[in-house]
Amino acid sequence: VTLFVASYDYEARTEDDLSFHKGEKFQILNSSEGDWWEARSLTTGETGYIPSNYVAPV
Rank of each mutant, 00 (worst) to 15 (best):
V1E: 12
V1L: 13
V1R: 11
V1H: 13
T2V: 13
L3T: 08
L3F: 12
L3G: 03
L3Y: 13
L3A: 06
F4V: 10
F4C: 08
F4H: 05
F4G: 04
V5H: 04
V5D: 01
V5M: 10
V5L: 06
A6C: 06
A6F: 02
A6Q: 00
A6V: 03
A6I: 03
A6K: 00
S7W: 14
S7C: 15
S7D: 08
S7P: 04
S7M: 15
S7I: 15
Y8D: 09
Y8M: 13
Y8R: 12
Y8K: 11
Y8H: 10
D9M: 05
D9N: 08
D9H: 06
D9I: 03
D9S: 09
Y10Q: 00
Y10T: 00
Y10W: 09
E11V: 14
E11G: 05
E11Y: 10
A12N: 04
A12L: 01
A12W: 03
A12E: 02
A12S: 10
R13A: 10
R13I: 11
R13H: 09
R13E: 10
R13T: 13
R13M: 11
T14D: 11
T14N: 14
T14W: 13
T14A: 11
T14M: 11
T14C: 15
T14Q: 11
E15S: 13
E15W: 09
E15K: 13
D16H: 15
D16G: 15
D16L: 14
D16P: 04
D16A: 14
D17L: 10
D17S: 14
L18H: 01
L18P: 00
L18I: 10
S19T: 09
S19K: 04
S19Y: 03
F20W: 01
F20Q: 00
H21E: 08
H21P: 05
H21Q: 13
H21T: 12
H21N: 10
H21Y: 11
K22F: 06
G23I: 01
G23V: 00
G23R: 01
E24D: 14
E24Q: 06
E24C: 06
K25H: 11
K25D: 01
K25S: 07
F26E: 00
F26H: 00
F26Y: 01
F26M: 05
Q27W: 14
Q27V: 15
Q27S: 07
I28S: 01
I28T: 01
L29Y: 06
N30L: 06
N30I: 07
N30W: 08
N30V: 07
S31H: 10
S31M: 15
S31L: 10
S32E: 10
S32Y: 09
S32L: 11
G34M: 10
G34I: 10
G34K: 13
G34T: 12
G34S: 12
D35E: 12
D35F: 14
D35V: 10
D35M: 11
D35P: 10
D35H: 10
W36P: 04
W36D: 02
W36C: 08
W36A: 05
W36T: 06
W37I: 05
W37C: 04
W37F: 07
W37P: 00
W37A: 01
E38T: 11
A39E: 01
A39Y: 03
A39R: 00
A39L: 02
R40L: 11
R40G: 00
R40Q: 08
R40T: 10
S41W: 02
S41N: 12
S41Q: 05
L42Y: 06
L42G: 02
L42R: 02
L42H: 04
T43C: 13
T43Q: 08
T43K: 11
T43I: 08
T44L: 02
T44Q: 02
T44A: 02
G45C: 10
G45Y: 06
G45A: 04
G45I: 01
G45P: 00
E46Q: 14
E46K: 15
E46H: 11
E46D: 09
E46S: 09
T47H: 07
T47N: 05
T47Y: 08
T47W: 08
T47D: 04
G48P: 00
G48H: 03
G48W: 04
G48C: 04
G48Q: 01
G48E: 01
G48A: 02
Y49S: 06
Y49K: 13
Y49G: 03
I50P: 01
I50C: 03
I50M: 02
I50Q: 00
P51K: 06
P51M: 06
P51S: 05
P51G: 03
P51N: 09
N53P: 06
N53C: 15
N53Y: 11
N53L: 09
Y54K: 07
Y54L: 13
V55N: 02
V55I: 10
V55C: 05
V55K: 03
A56V: 15
A56K: 14
A56W: 10
A56L: 13
P57G: 05
P57H: 06
P57I: 08
P57V: 08
V58Y: 12
V58L: 13
V58H: 08
V58P: 05
V58M: 12
V58C: 12
